[in-house]
Amino acid sequence: MNGVINDMEQIFTLTKNTPIAKDVYRAVLRGDTSRITVPGQFVNVKLDGFFLRRPISVCDWTIPFMGDEGELTLIYKVVGKGTDAMSRLKEGAELSVLTGLGHGFDVSASGKRPLLVGGGVGTPPMYGLAKKLVRAGISVDVILGFNTAEDVFLADEFEALNDLYEFGCEGFEGKKPEVRVYLTTVSGETGTKGFVTDCVPKIGECTHYYACGPIPMLKALKAKMAETFPDAEGELSLEERMGCGFGACVGCSVETASGFKKVCTDGPVFPAAEVFCE
């Protein structure tokens, strides 16, 4: 099997699989990550006993270096039998993964101080994006939205990116990039009570934003941004049920301003101006 097909399918070894919030797990896998090139891409994971693979966004990754394998971090929520089975996998389990799928975020379009918005289980890809931006010396505002306190994850990790600079961001001089995190919960137990859109007016200025989260959140955010920062351009990462994840089945189509697109290969990240135009 391997060797016949190109590097899209890789076998990864699970090294960690731990709960980090209610029904949310962090899986760390080792394997060839070289097809993952930009934040916002996803992988499609084969689980024993399930016909379809599980598409999961890449939270973070390291590239293979000096003969060392790369490391892939996935954060996923248990929503059904498949993800439940995944949460029960033990360290050392080997998984077939279709890797480096989809078009991710355009880091070069960030502007001076981009806004990153993550809602619920849409938060993980925003972490990899924030890390990439901070590494490039760019300060970011991050709005995170969750339902309740027990759903919150990654907020501390985003804060910790403030220290990333100390550990050797390559090559830029001058000001240390800042990561300002605005946490919201619907319940109000922690952070600001409300939705991610309630935090948008707290941002000083914004010419570019990135977001991933539930469709209603993305729609509300697009409207709020248009009202608050009319000149800001956005990139939204969409989710849809997929058959294959690599463009063959056309199961995950979306209507955009420039015609029908596949979420898996044309996206999952689309310009905000292209989607939710009705």
């Binding site: 016909f51 379809l52 849809e240 049920r241 058959g243 056309v250 199961g251 189509s253 029908f260």
Partner: peptide, 23 residues
């Protein structure tokens, strides 16, 4: 043809359902 509205993929035991609708 755009095909049918999404979602149009569902998993079943040892198979799947598609309602792509000839996109």
């Amino acid at each position: 043809r755009f095909g049918n509205p999404t979602p149009r993929i569902a998993e079943c035991t040892a198979g799947m359902i598609n309602s792509v609708g000839l996109a």
